[in-house]
Computed example of a mutant assay.
Amino acid sequence: MHRAGLVLAAALLSGATRGDDPLTRPITGSDATLWLQPDAPLRVFPKLGYIGPKWVKQGVIDTGKGLVLIDAGLPEGLPVLRAHLAELGYRIDQVRWLLVTEPHYDHAGAIAAIVRESGARVYASASTAAALRHGISGDEDPQRASLIAFAPVRNVIIVKDGQRLRFGNVSITARAMPGHTPGSMGWSWQTCTPASGCAKVFFAASLNSLTAGTYRYRDHPELVAAFRRSIAMLRDEPCDVLLSNHADHSGADLRAAARRAGTTPDPMRTPEACKAMADKYATLLDAQLAREDAAPK
C-alpha cells in the first residue's frame, strides 16, 4: 500500500474510535468553501440531471430500473448530492450504478459512502480501479504530489475503452480519455424524448494537463501520445450535449446558466461543444510541453 494509503487507514481507524464517520469525514479542510460553492441542479432532459456544487458536478441518469451516477464528488459534498437528487425527485439509495471518470478526490472521494448507502456497483478503467483501491493515485499520476487521500473503494468493475454497458433501458459506452490521469474515462449515451427527439450525450473526463511536484509530461512520452489520442477522440465525437465534472472545463456552466435564463434554442444542445473542448485542451497541452522544454533541467 502507498504510504498515504497507510496514513489514511490509520486516520480512519482513529476516527472510528472517536465516533465520527470515516466515509463522510471532510477531506479538503479550508478549501471546502471553494469546492462547495452552491449551484442549482439542472434537469437537462426528463431522465438526465446535472447536479452538485458549482465546481464539482455529477451526472444522474434515470434508467427506469434505478439511477446511474457519474462521479461521486467529495465526502463533504454528500448533503448537496442528497438535496439535489431530492429536488429532481430521487433518493441516494436509488443509485444502482456509479461510473467514475478519474480517481482524484474531487471525483471519487464520496464513492465509498455512496456505495455503503445505496449498494451501487462501481465501474472504472483498470488504472482508475487500482487507484480507487488505495484511495489515492500512484506516482504515475501527473498530480500525485498534490492529491488528497480518500476512503478506499475495494470492489470496482473494470471496463475497457469502447465497452458498452446496459443499465435498465440505457446503454452507455466507456471512452478512454487518458492524459489528465492515466486511466481517465468519458461516458457516452443517447437520450430520447417525445418533445425534443434524440440527443447524443457525452460526460467528459478532465483534460487539463496540470502537474505537481517534479512530474514532467516530457518524461512520459507514452502518456503524451495517449493524451493526444484522447483529444482527437473528443474532437471527432458526435455529441449534442457535453457535460463534465468541472463544468467550466466543458463550458457546461455557461450553457446551464443560459438554459436557466430561458435562452432559445436550447443552449444545452451544442453540437460543437466537444470539438471546442478538445481544441481548448490541445492548446493548453502544447503550452505545458513548451514550458517544460523551456525550464532548466
Rank of each mutant, 00 (worst) to 15 (best):
M1D: 12
H2N: 04
V7H: 07
A9Y: 03
T28H: 13
T28Y: 10
Q37R: 14
A40L: 13
A40P: 07
A40R: 14
P41V: 04
P41H: 10
L42I: 09
V44R: 03
K47E: 11
I51E: 00
G59Q: 01
G59C: 02
V60S: 03
I70D: 04
E76P: 00
R82K: 13
A86K: 07
E87G: 06
L88T: 06
L88F: 04
I92L: 12
W97Q: 09
L98H: 06
L99N: 07
G109Y: 02
V115I: 11
A120M: 08
R121L: 12
Y123P: 05
T128W: 11
A129V: 07
L132Y: 04
G135S: 09
S137I: 03
Q143V: 04
R144M: 00
A145S: 10
I158Q: 07
D161N: 14
Q163P: 00
R164A: 13
L165V: 08
L165H: 11
A174F: 03
A176Y: 00
M177D: 01
G183V: 04
W187Y: 11
W187G: 00
P194S: 08
A195M: 11
C198A: 10
A199H: 11
A204N: 06
T211N: 12
A212W: 00
H220F: 05
P221I: 07
V224D: 05
A225S: 14
A225H: 14
R228K: 13
S230R: 04
A232Q: 03
M233C: 08
R235I: 01
P238H: 09
D248G: 12
S250N: 06
A252C: 12
D253E: 15
L254D: 15
A256C: 11
R260E: 15
P265E: 08
P271M: 05
K275S: 13
A276Q: 11
M277T: 04
A278T: 06
T283G: 06
A287L: 12
A295I: 12
A295Y: 13
